[in-house]
Nucleic acid binder design. Structure first.
Lengths: 211, 211
DNA sequence: TGAAAAACAAAGCAATTGCTCAAAAATTAA
DNA sequence: TTAATTTTTGAGCAATTGCTTTGTTTTTCA
């Protein structure tokens, strides 16, 4: 099959590459903090260190920056779940997924908040991705988890709600960061260690079958 | 001690009562969907069914509506946790709390999203409440849970992270509603039942001490 | 080196923002 | 009824919004 449908893809000069990245980085900072409607092109341009018309020279509109960010986000978001696969030790396999998600919350809190903002506002630019690739992937992995459950290798749990609880507990440390920091006085590293230890216990005891 | 510090508290006429409530209801709808910065006074006035100047006759500014909502929110928010108290059966006591939180997510999704929006944006109008009343309450309940843990009545868990995981898993069903609805095809009632059943298992197995 | 192309930004556009003003309408109290 | 008070709004304010126009500067490459 030939690359027929690829629209003319000018190969991006060095300076284009650099500026697009600056803009996307700025967009991540601003959109993740204020949401799409609460962010302004002025803020984006300031954060990117360039003039407003120059920003709009690289992206046709504020929305285009947002969409580009969301598209890029989806890949990273799906990746750890994609890696969840058949294993002789399903419990550990799932726990590895939990730890990857927690590590991502810690390494990419802005991305997590960008995602949370988009979903909170009704996913106006993301509902396609949710009902498409995301749903497909989750269905596939839920079936895998269900089979482990059927074989008695893990406890009987609803695989969808299991996945939701993994998402919510791990992302919570990024999205509700301010709240957690206000309640716990420990430093970030301490919190992450506590979270990892707790979540390990939480999901291990849930997944371990009753003998 | 006399009520000396009470500022002049005009007792609100019937019409004031009605219109303030209309505005707060409108504010809940709009702010929970778009966040503070993404919402406009026009939207508020429209949703409240009154003219813009009339809305600003009852609240001095857009921010005043937002603050009033957040203040009201804090009480409802704390209530279920306040009710968590000494019990001969700590595990069930905690599970009751989980169910109350889940029920609140289902009954008041807009409130949950309003709260999530505020935290996501760095809690500009809420950090006082977090570091004050919220932290105090959580500290108190964490100590209670810790004592149960020390006495061997529940498993050894970090009580703070336990509470965070209860918050995150239950609120997830309100805040990420759109995502869940996109992945699960079941109706709302079915989802809530599944969630309740799953969370019961999740926290019961986590809290049950190893014999 | 020089001409074509790409990158940039000052100024400005109509529309929208949060909010005010002045005056009209509705309600209340005498 | 009438006068005082409360409630409501059309019009409009300066500032900000997303984006364009227009032209200048910089880079590319022959």
């Amino acid at each position: 099959m030939q690359k027929i449908n690829t629209p003319k893809k000018a190969p991006l000069s060095r300076i284009q590459e650099k500026n697009r990245n600056l803009i996307l980085k700025a967009g991540l900072e601003v959109f993740s903090k204020y949401g799409f409607r609460g962010s302004t092109v002025d803020q984006l341009a300031n954060a990117a260190g360039m003039s407003k018309p120059n920003l709009l020279y690289y992206f046709p509109s504020k929305e285009a920056v947002h969409v580009a960010l969301l598209e890029q986000l989806l890949e990273n978001w799906l990746e750890p779940l994609i890696e969840l696969g058949p294993s002789t030790n399903p419990i550990d396999e799932i726990l590895v997924y939990v730890k990857k998600k927690l590590a991502m919350s810690r390494a990419y809190p802005l991305e997590s908040r960008l995602y949370a903002n988009e979903i909170l506002q009704g996913a106006p630019n993301f509902s396609g991705a949710i009902k498409g690739p995301l749903k497909e992937l989750v269905d596939e992995k839920a079936a895998l988890i269900q089979s482990w459950s059927d074989e008695g290798k893990i406890a009987v749990v609803n695989p969808y709600h299991l996945i939701f609880s993994i998402w919510s507990t791990t992302q919570h440390y990024a999205d509700f960061d301010v709240q957690i920091g206000g309640i716990l006085s420990s430093d970030k590293h301490e919190i992450t260690k506590g979270a990892e230890c707790y979540l390990e216990h939480l999901f291990r005891s849930t997944l371990t079958p009753k003998t």
